[in-house]
Nucleic acid binder design. Structure first.
Lengths: 231, 231
DNA sequence: TTGTTCATGTCGTAC
DNA sequence: GTACGACGTGAACAA
């Protein structure tokens, strides 16, 4: 990895065009040839970048550029899309290279399908008298997250999301349409369950007779811990 | 900005838990206190990070940690969510600080918002006698990109995309359904406008009586430049 | 390889 | 501040 602190301007031409005016920035060149341009603030996202696979080539500035103060030009080209990033370097304040080796990578814990497992175990959250039937109930157009029955024994299809948006409502709508055409299982009602539900998704769901259910992940996990401890 | 190359392990506890085993990495501390942990490959996304607002505190490793080889502990805490990132530092290979100043920021060209602005100004592209009403016209399920009127005064909802795909047609369909149920604005017809329109999207749109309109971004920008120059 | 869904998404913008 | 959609979305996983 090479780290360069330099006064530079940057131009990107690819899926869009973008330009960075002259300023002092960090240029990070990774072992795979990719380049990141970072400022001293903002988020983890670079101001500009080129992802691998790409190649970087150094070239001499022409006389106009030299007159303007450019001392070096880096041209980074993506090998597939041919997107281009051009860094015009005016002054270099720091330049160092470091051997890092390959990284063992990130280990994550506790994300997504956990919620499905918890709701299957705590099916009473759907309401009085509900019973669990199946997780990942297969239909011709994909699996329904959870299939349950209400107190009267009618089928209930549950679509589960962390962040409930319109897409999830559309998905559940398609399942319900299909299942309600199958006399073996119809009638099927729908529940849209998520940790957060956007107002417009809620509106669309309710327009279509789909019930919305907000889930409290921490409470559900807490209940699970308690249950686990008891047995 | 401070740049540290160090052998370290990292633990994150927040919305999820994550762990990085011992390896040599770049630690970037930005002026706002945020921290980025980068390896020498992968994408522009750091292996782990803490976004501002956050504060970083140095602490001494306890005796177990010292025995394991830890020479310093950085604890970065998010000021609002209290997410925590703990960096256990074993050996430092490089440590430098640099003054970058604030960045003037990125100038983008060619995004959807620009296209929206141009079409609002050049509403005649929709057809003879069309007039512009509003950008980002709010409905209960989200904003319609452009609301216009045709020559007869009937409302027209325009959904704008750079690359027109089925999703965009579905989005416009939802708006039209809702708006056509509102007697104050019905009847509303739809126009699906994009720089490129995929064949399936075009078929679906036309099946639903939605007109498709291909936009020539360069021509629209050129017309804009001309108009700007003339006045 | 392609498509689909998730994300500690992040980012801008209108309300 | 909240809500919402776009993003050079990127990344992981299934088919």
């Amino acid at each position: 990895m090479r780290l360069v602190i330099a006064e530079c301007s940057v131009d990107y031409a690819g899926r869009l065009s973008a330009h960075l005016p002259l300023a002092t920035r960090l240029l990070m060149i990774k072992a795979d040839g990719s380049l990141l341009v970072h400022s001293d603030g903002g988020s983890y996202k670079p101001l500009n970048w080129m992802s691998p696979p790409c190649s970087i080539s150094l070239s001499e500035p022409d006389s106009d550029q030299t007159d303007a103060g450019v001392t070096a030009l880096w041209t980074v080209t993506h090998l597939k899309t041919l997107d281009q990033l051009v860094v015009s370097i005016f002054e270099v304040f720091h330049d160092s290279a470091h051997e890092l080796g390959i990284d063992p990578g990130l280990i994550k814990d506790g994300a997504e399908s956990h919620l499905q497992k918890l709701l299957a175990e705590q099916i009473h959250l759907l309401g009085e008298g509900f019973s669990f039937v199946k997780r990942e109930y297969m239909t011709a157009i994909g699996p329904v997250d959870i299939l349950a029955q209400d107190a009267s024994g009618a089928s209930v299809a549950v679509e589960l999301k962390r962040n409930g948006d319109i897409d999830g409502v559309e998905q559940l709508t398609r399942y319900l349409e299909l299942m309600n055409r199958d006399p073996h299982i119809a009638p099927v009602s729908g529940v849209f369950a998520a940790q957060t539900i956007k107002p417009q998704a809620r509106k669309l769901a309710e327009d279509r007779g789909i019930r919305c259910l907000l889930l409290d992940y921490d409470a559900m996990r807490g209940a699970d811990d308690t249950a686990t401890r008891l047995f």
